[in-house]
């Protein structure tokens, strides 16, 4: 009988916590519009200036980031780096990826590792 009560209490507690967790929002979303407009994030300005820089080279002509030549996107938000550095040599010391694709070449569950020197 006690076990059942404990179980019920655990289920109820978990349900309440899950309900609260599903309502969780980033702090930005809680700010009212007036406040949000006053705040300019540092990284946003930085992104703008990088965006200006990345389309020019020393001669003033477009570089590899030119959409016409390479058909790329303007938005680098999901990219690993910016502008010419995409081809650049910013090798991370050790990169550990998640799971490789299931193409039959890899051992299932293995984690590829790469190191640039």
């Amino acid at each position: 009988m006690i076990d059942r009560r404990l179980l019920l209490a655990a289920v109820a507690g978990t349900a309440i916590l899950a309900a609260f967790a599903s309502q969780a929002l980033p702090l930005d979303a809680l700010r009212c519009n007036g406040t949000r407009n006053d705040i300019v994030k540092a990284d946003y300005r930085e992104h703008e200036s990088k965006g200006d820089r990345r389309h020019r080279d020393e001669d003033g002509r477009y570089t590899a980031n030119d959409r016409g030549r390479y058909g790329g996107d303007d938005d680098d938000d999901d990219d690993e780096d910016e502008g010419r550095a995409a081809y650049g040599d910013r090798g991370a010391p050790v990169q550990q990826n998640t799971n490789p694709p299931g193409n039959g070449l890899f051992t299932p569950g293995s984690k590829p590792r790469a190191q640039t020197n």
Partner: peptide
């Protein structure tokens, strides 16, 4: 890009070396 999900790293600079370790069949 689905072909390279989970097996993508940074580009490799001039004069540098890349060492990749994989568990292969």
């Amino acid at each position: 890009t689905g072909e390279i999900n989970g097996i993508t790293g940074a580009s490799v600079g001039s004069g540098r070396s890349l060492k990749i370790t994989l568990d292969l069949a």
